[in-house]
Nucleic acid binder design. Structure first.
Lengths: 148, 148
DNA sequence: ATAGATGGTCAAGCTGCTTGACTACATACT
DNA sequence: AGTATGTAGTCAAGCAGCTTGACCATCTAT
């Protein structure tokens, strides 16, 4: 594959990712969840199953513990999560989503579906599913970093 | 398409985009172009054909003119671009890439090719090309915004 | 028991962005 | 032509989100 092709692929991928982020963010706001940034959404995905510690969130986002702690402060203050004592470690605190946090997560899923809808209309459901499968296969496992 | 599928697609896309950005950035640095951030790269793509004004770069990046001006200051100070009088408008200044700027652009293309290579190994060249075509078709035309 | 590693927070500082104000030039209207 | 409005760009100040550094409480290993 030529360098210019790789660059075109990269540019398209980053443009799509940027637009998608914007649309999800707007959709979440339109559903009444304000004062959140995309980074909060990524934190939510890590909190979603059973909660996580600040350190785990920091690793997930690829930032320092201090930054993650500050981010958790925000979502706690806004009622999306709460800090509980950790069952196994008295140093740690388990951050878990509140009901409002779950509602916001569902809103984000709706917004994502809405953002993806134009793609389905353009490419068809089959192609979009294929796109998803390929992206899942090449997705890195490391921390989620901002696109730039 | 279900909401959860749309979310999985979004998550994979953003993860791939984040990883790709990181890899291109690292690759550019490894080729000796330091002190640049991904945002500079996006500015370069706008400057590439025939240069651009600060205002055009601002629109391209989705930031204020002041932020774009500051970013141009940086790449000028580091020798990647220079400001010239605009041929048609005495208010404006045309920012164009220097030879070093072009060299950096080529380095970014090499880095992109390098970053994409694992995907080719995983999916095959045919699939990656198909991926590119689909992404190009759904890519938005608006400003390039950060993923979060 | 003790030494070192780890979870979390407090504090200070930096960087990249924003808003606000301004000058120089362009464009449109009368 | 003359005037009013709009646009390109910069200077200045402020802010938000991140970093580094220091610290305490608790866990883990010897």
């Amino acid at each position: 594959m030529q360098n210019s092709e790789a660059m075109a692929l990269s540019a398209a991928l980053l443009a799509v990712a940027g637009g998608l982020t914007q649309r999800i963010h707007d959709g979440v706001e339109a559903r009444g969840f304000e004062g959140l940034r995309p980074a909060h959404g990524f934190a939510f995905t890590r909190l979603a199953p059973d909660g996580a510690t600040v350190t785990e969130i920091a690793a997930h986002l690829g930032v320092t513990k201090q930054a993650a702690s500050q981010l958790v402060d925000e979502i706690v203050r806004k009622g999306y999560a709460e800090r509980r004592p950790h069952p196994d470690d008295a140093r740690a605190r388990l951050v878990v989503l509140t009901e409002q946090g779950w509602a916001c997560t569902r809103a984000a899923e709706e917004a994502a579906a809405e953002a993806v809808r134009p793609w389905v209309e353009l490419l068809g459901e089959r192609e979009v599913r294929a796109l998803r499968e390929r992206l899942v296969r090449i997705a890195p496992s490391g921390p989620i970093k901002p696109v730039w």
